[in-house]
Lab assay of single mutants.
Amino acid sequence: DETGKFLVLALYDYQEKSPREVTAKKGDILTLLNSTNKDWWKVEVNGRQGFVPAAYVKFL
């Protein structure tokens, strides 16, 4: 159920650099879980949760 969740689009490829991050490919649609940090947003992609740089994604 996606009610109340926001989707964001990956603008660039991002390769995770730590276990707390997730890899995303340009064009991926990610479920935004938390955007309270202006630099790192928590997302879910391909069943995995983790952080990506906020500058790499935008709201749909």
Rank of each mutant, 00 (worst) to 15 (best):
1 D>N: 14
6 F>L: 14
8 V>E: 00
26 K>T: 07
27 G>W: 05
9 L>Y: 12
55 A>I: 11
33 L>P: 00
59 F>I: 15
33 L>E: 00
28 D>W: 08
51 F>R: 00
35 S>I: 11
52 V>N: 03
46 N>P: 01
19 P>N: 09
30 L>P: 00
27 G>C: 10
18 S>L: 08
1 D>V: 14
21 E>I: 05
37 N>L: 08
11 L>E: 02
53 P>T: 07
8 V>T: 02
17 K>F: 04
2 E>F: 13
8 V>W: 05
60 L>A: 07
39 D>Y: 15
38 K>T: 10
50 G>L: 04
50 G>T: 03
36 T>H: 11
34 N>K: 04
59 F>W: 09
27 G>Q: 02
20 R>W: 15
17 K>Y: 03
18 S>V: 02
49 Q>I: 15
44 E>C: 12
59 F>D: 07
19 P>G: 08
13 D>L: 05
2 E>C: 15
50 G>Y: 05
7 L>E: 06
34 N>H: 06
57 V>Y: 02
41 W>N: 00
19 P>Q: 10
37 N>I: 05
42 K>H: 12
14 Y>E: 01
8 V>S: 00
16 E>Q: 13
16 E>N: 05
14 Y>H: 03
22 V>M: 06
32 L>Q: 00
27 G>M: 03
53 P>E: 04
58 K>D: 09
50 G>H: 02
18 S>M: 06
42 K>D: 04
27 G>E: 04
57 V>M: 11
13 D>Q: 04
58 K>Q: 14
29 I>A: 02
36 T>P: 03
22 V>F: 12
15 Q>I: 15
4 G>C: 15
45 V>T: 09
37 N>W: 05
56 Y>H: 07
54 A>Y: 04
10 A>E: 02
15 Q>N: 13
13 D>R: 03
51 F>L: 08
55 A>K: 14
55 A>E: 10
25 K>L: 09
31 T>F: 11
59 F>K: 10
59 F>N: 07
11 L>W: 06
36 T>Q: 12
48 R>F: 05
33 L>D: 00
50 G>C: 08
21 E>L: 06
15 Q>G: 07
40 W>C: 08
54 A>M: 05
56 Y>M: 14
35 S>L: 07
15 Q>M: 14
12 Y>F: 12
50 G>W: 05
11 L>N: 01
14 Y>A: 01
7 L>I: 09
46 N>I: 05
51 F>K: 01
60 L>N: 06
33 L>W: 04
22 V>R: 00
19 P>A: 10
25 K>R: 11
55 A>N: 11
14 Y>T: 01
4 G>V: 13
46 N>Q: 08
28 D>M: 11
48 R>G: 04
16 E>M: 11
27 G>I: 04
21 E>R: 03
12 Y>K: 11
34 N>R: 05
14 Y>V: 03
57 V>D: 00
39 D>V: 13
1 D>A: 14
50 G>V: 04
46 N>A: 09
9 L>R: 06
5 K>C: 15
10 A>R: 02
46 N>W: 07
48 R>Q: 08
54 A>H: 03
60 L>P: 03
29 I>S: 02
52 V>A: 02
7 L>Y: 15
8 V>M: 07
21 E>Q: 09
3 T>Q: 14
44 E>T: 04
47 G>N: 06
16 E>R: 11
60 L>M: 12
15 Q>D: 14
10 A>T: 10
23 T>L: 04
32 L>P: 01
32 L>D: 00
47 G>I: 06
42 K>Q: 12
39 D>W: 15
24 A>K: 04
3 T>S: 12
1 D>Q: 13
33 L>M: 05
50 G>D: 01
14 Y>K: 01
14 Y>R: 00
36 T>W: 10
4 G>L: 11
20 R>Y: 14
12 Y>S: 06
18 S>H: 13
45 V>Y: 07
47 G>W: 04
33 L>I: 14
21 E>G: 11
16 E>S: 15
60 L>Q: 07
26 K>M: 09
58 K>L: 12
41 W>C: 07
58 K>N: 06
30 L>D: 00
6 F>W: 14
16 E>G: 15
57 V>L: 15
3 T>P: 13
3 T>R: 13
9 L>A: 04
28 D>G: 04
43 V>M: 00
51 F>Y: 15
59 F>P: 13
41 W>E: 00
16 E>C: 15
34 N>V: 08
45 V>W: 05
46 N>H: 09
6 F>V: 15
60 L>V: 12
30 L>G: 01
34 N>F: 08
27 G>F: 04
57 V>C: 10
16 E>Y: 04
2 E>M: 14
53 P>H: 06
56 Y>C: 15
60 L>K: 05
46 N>D: 11
14 Y>Q: 01
33 L>T: 03
37 N>M: 07
53 P>I: 08
25 K>N: 09
37 N>S: 09
5 K>E: 09
14 Y>D: 02
35 S>K: 12
47 G>E: 04
33 L>N: 00
54 A>G: 02
32 L>T: 02
10 A>H: 02
1 D>H: 14
35 S>D: 10
50 G>N: 00
13 D>I: 08
16 E>T: 06
22 V>Y: 03
10 A>P: 01
